[in-house]
Write a protein that binds this DNA or RNA. Structure first.
Length: 819
DNA sequence: TCCCAACGGGG
DNA sequence: GTGTACGTTGGGA
């Protein structure tokens, strides 16, 4: 008999022998670093059958128990059935819990039971076995658990396999520092975009705590001591498995490794008829194609594609123009990738010798950044793991909607509720047709404004859902004990009612989340830099803010268009109320969008502060308007062909002269450096220096410089990526044309290649006048003035009364007083 | 303004 | 993964 503590890392199930029973399998680590696997033979998967009424419950139960359905390799039948009083969306229902031997039997039984008389439907048939187990056993991955059971023999590559009698999560105890191993491959890339059928992997880098290694399949002299040489790719691949096995990581991390590294490694293993056996049960890496994105799973070792997590979950906080490794690590870690030009790796490789070294370093830096990013993201990951109770490999790949749903599922038992099924095909399509009226937006008149106070409702939608008890479970026809919201769905005005008689599932959970978040934020005030507290409040915020989107998400179990429509309807009411109040107090309303209002408050901050407290006095609990900031100046910009200012396109400057830019185009990559610079400088002069005239002069100066060709070529380079091979293009843009020339020269250019070009003077359209950046000696001033510089500043100036012609000096000089 | 196609990350 | 499955943006009509 063994009694042992461990941290669960991953969980799945296998088909056992006895009658094809499903056996839960958890891989984890003990506090002293031993790998273990625990098997639970005793847990039965189950689902719910909701009955039309109580009357025939025991008859139906017996009928279910007598079902025997022949499956290819076993007999599907219910091992047990029991009658319960449950709730389904707050309605009291009589339900039968049906237990099975093997999770796969759920499908066959469900089909048979659905057809029985007196049965309303089968629910929770689509909850995966391992999820059911974690929820019912109240186990959160990474939280310390205790198991008792017998050690058994196995071929698993772990220190111990235990068949358990009992398992329970202990209070406290968390795997704070999982052993992370990151990896990254470099590939021979003569064709720029490597093809895994032919192009070998030439090196693999690893990074972990006190560990770095690059395995390289071509020898050169003077290598650093972390370099290990192997004789060919076959040996490189074998060593890849060796290194992972001997490091014994808790997590294996990569950057876009779901989409590139692991699939590529697998293809290369296939090439040699070798098997990519990384699983702790000696299984191969399994790939799962889901729509466009695939995932790679390793039995027993959570594989984290940290790119996916950052892109999906943390991007809201980062707001970066791109999520490539360089941009993300520069932003989060303060340092990016090595400067080597990866497009030339193949050259260095062919040449051999020390030329390779640069790329070995590049490879190692990539692995190091990946490691550091993973470490940095652990607090975020951990919070969601605790909130949703699912293992890291799943949490790290989830979208907001899935996080919300799994959080609700984990807590649904507190309401004695049965969860609705996930929708499929036509239901989802039908839902996608239904649109819900969105938020209220008051567009600003374009122009320069002074003394702007910005107000925000704190968590507007979550607080509305909570304050007005908006939930699929409280939606009612009953006019007594309910309140109504006139809402708009698919263009139709409707009135929906939500009961006040009992608290809804979502309102209750959200209220709890909001209160917890307030508490965490209070702690954060004392401990401003604490990454764990920060991650905690962030994950709570994500969950609360995603609830509204979840109601409107066609794939949601608790989809509820009425809830979504009512939430925005209340949102519009609240924000319009604020606007009314502002106008009554004599404050000018500049702009409003969803949950925020921009007011012109004059020089006195007292006005601004008094306004907040006036509004808050009348709001229900949890709801609160906040003074987000005070800005001496702000510019709101016009959209082409639009009388009013564009929504979400403005720049503000605060009292510390920091500029906040929202919605401008220059953050995007396909503008020249020149265009970016000019826009930034213009905003600075207008907002910080408060000198429109000077900004005009600045742009005129730039135009003169462009015309006299005094701008360095490198600021004129425009970068564009080929999205397909050159011959597949119908319309030949500049970058395609340049690529064609490169191909003629014998260079290998194809889908994925990044083309840098500069537009030249001369005849023909822009494409015909584009030259490869490295060949360019000059540029076309007219193009850069009219297609790069003017477009990015035009709207800014038109907001303050200057036209394009003024900038070019084509109008007579005018001064502002004329406007 | 709406609809559809393309893209992202990786080398 | 036990019926399923990306989400966003830009260009063209």
């Amino acid at each position: 008999m063994e009694n042992i503590d461990f941290y669960p890392l991953t969980i799945d199930y296998i088909d056992g022998h006895e009658g094809g029973r499903g056996i839960i399998r958890i891989f984890g680590r003990t506090p002293d670093g031993k790998r273990i696997c625990v098997l639970d033979h005793e847990f039965s998967h189950y689902f719910w059958v909701i009955l039309e009424d109580k009357k025939n419950a025991s008859k139906i139960k017996d009928k279910i128990l007598s079902l025997k359905i022949k499956e290819p390799r076993r007999l599907a039948y219910a091992t047990d059935a029991s009658i319960h009083n449950k709730k389904y969306l707050s309605e009291d229902v009589c339900a039968i819990k049906v237990e099975v031997n093997n999770p796969k039997d759920v499908t066959s039984l469900r089909h048979a039971i659905k057809e029985m008389n007196g049965v309303r439907g089968c629910k929770e048939t689509d909850i995966p076995f391992h999820k059911r187990y974690l929820i019912d056993k109240k186990i959160d991955p990474l939280s310390l658990c205790n198991v008792s059971g017998e050690e058994i023999e196995s071929n698993y590559t772990v220190d111990k396999v235990i068949s358990i009698n009992e398992i329970c999560q202990k209070d406290g105890g968390y795997l704070e520092e999982p052993r992370v191993l990151s990896f990254d491959i470099e590939v021979y890339n003569k064709k720029r975009v490597p093809n895994s059928d032919e192009d070998p992997i030439v090196m693999i880098a690893f990074y972990g705590k006190n560990f770095k290694k690059v395995i390289v399949s071509k020898k050169y002299t003077g290598a650093e001591k972390y370099v290990e040489f192997v004789k060919d790719e076959r040996e490189l691949l074998t060593r890849f498995i060796d290194v992972v096995n001997s490091f014994k990581p808790d997590y294996l991390a990569g950057y876009f490794s779901d989409g590139f590294d692991l699939p590529y490694i697998k293809d290369r293993f296939d090439e040699y008829n070798m098997k990519l056996k990384l699983g702790l049960d000696e299984s191969i890496v399994k790939f799962n194609q889901r729509g466009n994105s695939q995932t790679a799973r390793i039995t027993g070792i959570p594989h984290i594609d940290i790119f996916k997590f950052i892109r999906r979950i943390v991007s809201g906080e980062l707001n970066l123009p791109s999520y490539d490794l360089d941009t993300v690590s520069k932003h989060l870690l303060g340092r990016g990738k090595s400067g080597a030009d990866i497009g030339n790796l193949y050259n260095a490789w062919d040449k051999g010798g020390n030329a390779i070294e640069e790329y070995v370093k590049y490879n190692l830096v990539d692995a190091e950044r990946t490691y550091e990013l993973t470490e940095k993201m652990l607090p975020h990951l951990n919070e969601f793991i605790k909130l949703c109770g699912l293992p890291p490999e799943e949490i790290s790949r989830m979208s907001y909607g899935q996080l919300v749903e799994n959080y609700v599922l984990k807590n649904i038992d507190k309401f004695n509720e049965i969860a609705p099924n996930r929708p499929y095909g036509d239901v989802m399509k039908k839902r996608e047709m239904e649109s819900v009226e969105g938020a209220f937006v008051l567009r600003p008149g374009a122009g320069l404004y002074k003394n702007i106070a910005v107000y925000d409702f704190k968590s507007l939608y979550p607080t509305i859902i909570s304050a007005h008890n908006i939930c699929p479970s409280t939606l009612t026809q009953n006019k007594i004990d309910s309140h109504e919201t006139p809402s708009v769905v698919s263009g139709k005005n409707e009135t929906y009612r939500f009961s006040y008689k009992y608290d809804g599932i979502f309102p209750t959970l959200i209220k709890d989340i909001l209160i917890r978040r307030t508490r965490v934020k209070d702690l954060l005030k004392k401990n401003k830099k604490d990454p764990v507290l920060h991650a905690r409040q962030y994950s709570l915020k994500i969950l609360a803010n995603s609830a509204y989107g979840y109601f409107a998400f066609s794939g949601a179990r608790w989809y509820c268009k009425e809830c979504a429509a009512s939430t925005t309807a209340y949102g519009r009411d609240y924000i319009k109320n604020v606007i009314d109040k502002a106008e009554k107090s004599g404050l000018d309303v500049i702009y409003s969008d969803t949950d925020s209002v921009f007011l012109s408050v004059g020089k006195s901050m007292k006005n601004a502060e008094k306004f907040v407290s006036d509004v808050n006095r009348d709001l229900p609990s949890l709801m609160e308007l906040e003074l987000e900031g005070y800005y001496p100046r702000g510019i709101f910009v016009m959209k082409k062909g639009d009388e009013n200012g564009a929504k979400k396109k403005y720049a503000l400057v605060d009292e510390n002269n920091e500029i906040k830019v929202v919605g401008f185009e220059t953050v995007r990559g396909d503008w020249s450096k020149l265009a970016r610079e000019v826009q930034k400088e213009v905003l600075k002069i207008i907002l910080v220096e408060d000198d429109v005239k000077k900004a005009v002069d600045y742009v005129r100066g730039v135009i003169i410089k462009i015309n006299s060709k005094k701008i360095p070529i490198e600021k004129m380079i425009i970068k564009k990526k080929l999205t397909r091979d050159v011959e597949d293009y119908n319309s030949i843009g500049p970058h395609v044309r340049v690529a064609k020339i490169l191909i003629k020269r014998g260079e290998i250019v194809g889908a994925g290649s990044e083309i840098e070009y500069v537009v030249q003077e001369g005849k023909g359209n822009i494409g015909e006048r584009s030259l490869l950046a490295s060949d360019a000696k000059s540029y076309d001033p007219e193009y850069y003035i009219n297609n790069q510089v003017l477009p990015v500043v035009e709207r800014i100036f038109s907001a303050v009364g200057y036209e394009k012609e003024d900038l070019k000096g084509e109008h007579k000089q005018r001064n502002l007083s004329e406007y």
